[in-house]
Design a binder for these strands. Sequence first.
DNA 1: AATGAATGAGCGTTCATTCAT
DNA 2: GATGAATGAACGCTCATTCAT
Lengths: 192, 192, 192, 192
Amino acid sequence: MGKDEPVRRRLLAEATRLFAEKGFESTSVQEIVAAAGVTKGAMYHYFGSKDDLLREIYARVLRMQIERLVRFADAPGPIPDRVHAAAVDVIVTTVDNLDDSKIFFRSMHQLAPENQKAVRAERRRYHERFRDLLVEGQRAGVFRDDVPADLVVDFFFGSVHHLGTWYHTDGRLSGTEVGRHFADLLLASLRP
Amino acid sequence: MGKDEPVRRRLLAEATRLFAEKGFESTSVQEIVAAAGVTKGAMYHYFGSKDDLLREIYARVLRMQIERLVRFADAPGPIPDRVHAAAVDVIVTTVDNLDDSKIFFRSMHQLAPENQKAVRAERRRYHERFRDLLVEGQRAGVFRDDVPADLVVDFFFGSVHHLGTWYHTDGRLSGTEVGRHFADLLLASLRP
Amino acid sequence: MGKDEPVRRRLLAEATRLFAEKGFESTSVQEIVAAAGVTKGAMYHYFGSKDDLLREIYARVLRMQIERLVRFADAPGPIPDRVHAAAVDVIVTTVDNLDDSKIFFRSMHQLAPENQKAVRAERRRYHERFRDLLVEGQRAGVFRDDVPADLVVDFFFGSVHHLGTWYHTDGRLSGTEVGRHFADLLLASLRP
Amino acid sequence: MGKDEPVRRRLLAEATRLFAEKGFESTSVQEIVAAAGVTKGAMYHYFGSKDDLLREIYARVLRMQIERLVRFADAPGPIPDRVHAAAVDVIVTTVDNLDDSKIFFRSMHQLAPENQKAVRAERRRYHERFRDLLVEGQRAGVFRDDVPADLVVDFFFGSVHHLGTWYHTDGRLSGTEVGRHFADLLLASLRP
DNA sequence: AATGAATGAGCGTTCATTCAT
DNA sequence: GATGAATGAACGCTCATTCAT
């Protein structure tokens, strides 16, 4: 009995897929449990509510994102290289988990206010970690400092979150290619 | 009975506000008509359905966006100046109509497939007009050409659409200030 | 459109019957609307909730009871006669509306706390009016005063409320006969 | 495995408390087992169903009541004294087990018809034993006989059952005091 | 042009109970 | 003796929409 119960995992997987496809509100609990091959009662055994499912999806995304960013940000090497690597990584990861990304901003307003607050707080930690890296670069003189670092973060992550709207796995460009291009654009825009 | 009927306009205004605040699915027709101070019957007199309201909101947004872009893109002057002006304008306009922006990507999947297709097509026209401007700049040698112009458009408009997620009218920066910074970053990222 | 809408009245009548028969919690909204020959939507057009139905039943009972008591208590004549008449009347009325009586104490705890409070407050007013009549008699020396008047009220109204548990319309005694006997017992118990 | 298993007793105790507090239908098996600190499986090991719990509560109440009444009714001494003593006792006992009393009439209709019938039969035995005592007094000329003894029983026990609705352990009067007053009123009402 | 009563399908959730372990 | 995952049916309620007036 743990977080790896197959029923539990199947429910989360199907919920993620359906929320990304049709949106949280347009996906019924009935559809989720049917897709997972269980009954409603089973779902309510593992999750307190439909909201709970969404919350878990958010928790999973946030956990992964912050872990990866910290790894890249704390790595040795010149700041621009670390920013570039972190930027590529977040795009590759987003593309690899495009359903999560689709859900993230589209459905955040459906979370209960307290959960929304928690998600935003965690998200802010992520934003701040990335911003601190940019500030470090600005202070070191390797990045322009006439644009607030916070604004650069919003600028770049807008592009990242937008991926869910247009990127298709079967398109012309791989995630890594898009990642390199976006990271190049970011670095170029930061040249002093 | 024209498009400017006050009841009709009030319904659209309240629907826009509520859809932005709580999402399309979480807003009931009852709430909309109550906010507009009319009855359900009145709403169904002016609009065929709740979806119809959403469609009109999209149509209004798209109409305005394309009109403004065309004006800036077709203006005289050096390409970088035109791109910069158009970029500032789209951000200022987005900030001035933040509710529309919040609704746009969050609720597109609620439109009937045919309407969704129409919106995407119109949106693509917008994207292409902006891209053509960038291609023109690449050909003229004023923009780098090692990044596909299409990708630059997605890069930049991601930032624009993300505004609805973080920008607050009462924050530190005005729409014009954000517009200038973002346009500067875009132009910087395009330097050959 | 008023409180006398036939659909509304039919719903209240059937709800009263079913709540008395099976209890509030064991009666489903589906059963009520089926008995009234309407759909759920219709019920929720007239009543905000299942609780609302119960609340209306209570309001109706309380309104009638207090009206009648006041009439008897404020009548001219010797106090014992007024007490006797009021006692007979409350029993006759209870027997005539036995379903309401069955519901009253059995289901009060199902009301939302605020409604419960309101019902108790109204009920207390009734209790106090009756008690004041007894106190008046005690002061005039026509009733014994070694038993607190409040306690006498609880003593007598226990008997009244219990009617719903045992009285059957088709039994040996009519409501008036039971009323006379109970009132006689009450008056006898109060002799100084 | 006897009737005194601590788990079994704890389940009955918590069920009694919860049924009195929130009603039978509004109390879930989950709440009962949580309050008793066991799991559902344990409950279904000791009791066949939720109804079974209720049935046992009724059985316990009935057993105690009839035992006590018989003891008082069969005691030596003048009939009025025996009636008075039995009346005081039933009130003291009711006040000491107020939860049982609250449940008794409020939840009887939730019992399966056959159990309901059994409870009513047992209850009738109690009623009849008390009534016989009154009839004896009427025949001996110590009680008035112009009111049917059955009706006097319903009159008095209404007051007793109503205690659950208004009596509070921390109120002004002790159970014994209420018992004495009620018994006095009963005896006074029966004076020939 | 506008009302509001009424529909009917579907929603998220609860819950007593079962059963393999 | 006891667990807890899973069931399946029912529950109260919501809501976009219709239609006679």
